Simulated scan of single mutants.
Amino acid sequence: MKNYYDDCPLAYALNIIGGKWRMLILYHLMGGGLRYNQLKKKLCGITNIMLTRSLRELEEYGLVKRIQHSEIPPHVEYFITEHAEKLVPTLMVIAEWGKEQRLLEKGE
């Protein structure tokens, strides 16, 4: 059975990166790897459950990779993948647009 995502590539893309947190996670990982708690601090208001779920989903889509370090104490870092690097220019344009909108709303 054919669905909407088959005919609309934008809908398909938004299904993968849409939602409240996924693009923000990718945006913050653009600068390099972050540990879970570092990322959580950058995402004001996200719950542990939502961050964990979002990271797992982004990992399943091949946009985030999780690297577990066996040091003492052990820790995990998250990075964007080469596949996700293709989104960086788009995320930067969206961020710039958001900055402009904020200035317009403030009347500057």
Rank of each mutant, 00 (worst) to 15 (best):
M1I: 11
M1F: 10
K2S: 15
N3M: 09
Y4M: 12
D6I: 11
D6S: 13
D6F: 10
D6M: 15
D6Y: 08
D7R: 10
P9S: 05
P9D: 05
L10Q: 03
L10W: 07
A11V: 08
Y12A: 15
A13C: 09
L14E: 14
L14V: 08
N15E: 12
I16E: 01
I17H: 01
I17F: 01
I17W: 00
W21K: 02
R22P: 02
R22I: 02
M23P: 05
M23C: 12
L24V: 01
L24A: 03
I25H: 02
I25Y: 00
I25K: 02
L26M: 06
Y27A: 06
Y27H: 14
H28E: 14
L29Y: 02
L29C: 09
M30T: 14
M30S: 07
G31L: 09
G31V: 08
G33A: 10
G33F: 03
L34G: 03
L34D: 09
Y36C: 06
K40Y: 02
K41F: 08
K41E: 10
K41T: 11
K42P: 01
K42E: 11
L43C: 06
G45T: 05
G45I: 10
G45P: 00
T47N: 05
I49L: 14
I49Y: 08
I49Q: 07
I49S: 07
M50V: 07
L51D: 08
R53C: 03
R53E: 07
S54C: 06
L55Y: 02
L55N: 08
L55V: 09
R56H: 07
E57I: 03
E57P: 00
E57W: 00
E57K: 01
E59K: 12
E59T: 14
E60Y: 02
E60I: 05
Y61W: 12
G62W: 08
G62P: 01
V64H: 00
K65Q: 14
R66F: 01
I67G: 05
I67P: 00
Q68F: 06
Q68N: 13
H69D: 05
S70D: 11
E71T: 15
I72N: 09
I72M: 06
I72A: 06
P73S: 03
P73Q: 02
P73M: 05
P74I: 14
H75G: 04
H75E: 04
V76H: 03
V76Q: 09
E77P: 00
E77V: 09
F79Y: 14
I80W: 00
T81H: 00
T81P: 00
E82L: 11
E82V: 07
A84W: 01
A84F: 04
E85V: 10
L87V: 07
V88P: 00
P89H: 11
P89Q: 07
L91Y: 10
I94E: 15
I94F: 09
E96G: 13
G98M: 13
G98H: 10
G98S: 11
G98R: 15
E100Y: 12
Q101V: 13
R102V: 11
L103N: 14
L104N: 14
E105R: 11
E105C: 10
K106Y: 13
K106W: 09
K106L: 15
G107K: 12
E108A: 11
